[in-house]
């Protein structure tokens, strides 16, 4: 159902997204069969392609030039994918989107080379854009994503962390790349500075909402819907928003403390997931996500009324309400 919704949302962009899909495939073509297989395997496993979509929609607020916009959209998706391959090594993940990860299918080292290769291809592609400002924005986003990931590792298994730490982490880990997608779309199309600023802030708020919902879904969606075991974040020691809110319940806090960082059986894992799912943590997380969604919509309201604005609004609602 969610995939159908997404397809409908993307319907106006389909021709452009098909070209992007082809460019992504071309970009990862390699003389190494192994890298070719690993990259294509990742590409064909799908994904929401929300970063390219945000670039395309944001670019409609300026002088839309398809080739230039693609030169921004393709690298952003490749950078995101490269980070996923490396994340799977960090998290020791065997499955992503229901498929074996690169590290599971080959090994950690091959996953490193695949990520490095995709990242390099991303920058090679991006280099077609001559405006240095775009490169500075993209470079900053890449560095911040890394900083966010480093902070996530530092904060691992610390049940006593505060809300501010969590928000700071997801800002860097997720929101900045989505924010940059919107900003870069606007910049690539030469949109005026005020419009670019609204787009950037819209992307930031949507990115925050997106990650919070992602963290909620880790508890509320099924293993099959997620394409990985539910509660994976908790198993890896990542303290996400539902946990931060859920720990206010003393009984639940005791369970979390007992199980955090332990090797859990499937039954134990599902018990934790069930308890968190039933807690106020999910409701409160969704409320916070909604607040970010509302902030995003306020940014959108300041933008000119063009068809893209409605598309961004629909996409924002989809992200805020998605089921997996």
């Amino acid at each position: 159902m969610e995939k159908v919704k997404l397809r409908i949302l993307y319907s106006d962009l389909r021709p452009e997204l098909e070209i992007i899909e082809k460019e992504l495939e071309q970009a990862v073509q390699s003389s190494s069969h192994l890298l070719n297989d690993a990259s294509l395997h990742l590409l064909q496993a799908g994904g929401k392609r929300i970063r390219p979509v945000f670039v395309l929609l944001a670019a409609k607020f300026g002088d839309y030039d398809a080739a230039t916009v693609r030169n921004v959209a393709v690298p952003l998706e490749l950078i995101h994918m490269a980070s996923l391959v490396h994340d799977d090594v960090i998290d020791d993940s065997e499955v992503r989107r229901g498929e074996p990860t690169v590290k599971a299918q080959w090994n950690n080292r091959v996953a490193m080379y695949t990520g490095d290769f995709m990242f390099a291809r991303a920058l090679e592609h991006a280099a077609a854009v001559r405006n240095p400002v775009l490169h500075e924005v993209l470079a900053k986003a890449i560095i911040e994503v890394c900083r966010g990931e480093i902070i996530q590792i530092e904060d691992k298994s610390q049940l006593d962390q505060n809300l501010r730490s969590y928000l700071r982490r997801i800002k860097r880990k997720t929101a900045l790349l989505i924010s940059s997608s919107c900003e870069l779309g606007g910049l690539a199309a030469g949109a005026d500075p005020a419009t670019v600023a609204h787009l950037r802030r819209f992307g930031y708020f949507i990115g925050m909402s997106f990650q919070i919902i992602d963290d909620v879904l880790d508890f509320t969606a099924s293993d099959a819907e997620l394409g990985k075991p539910a509660g994976s974040d908790f198993l890896q020691g990542n303290i996400t928003l539902p946990i931060l809110f859920a720990r206010d319940d003393e009984k639940l806090q005791a369970l979390l403390q007992r199980t955090l960082g332990e090797e859990l059986t499937d039954r134990q894992r599902l018990d934790v997931v069930e308890e968190v799912r039933e807690s106020a943590g999910i409701r409160r997380s969704k409320e916070l996500s909604d607040r970010y969604l509302q902030k995003a919509l306020r940014e959108l309201a300041a933008l000119p009324d063009i068809p893209s604005k409605k598309a961004l609004r629909d996409l924002a609602f989809f992200i805020g309400k998605r089921k997996f």
Binding site: S30, S31, S32, L34, L35, A38, W106, N107, R109, V110, Y113, T114, D116, F117, A120, R121, E124
Partner: peptide
């Protein structure tokens, strides 16, 4: 990209 390809090819 080329270096990564060469490193991967050793596998």
């Amino acid at each position: 990209a080329e270096i990564s390809e060469n490193k991967a090819s050793l596998y």
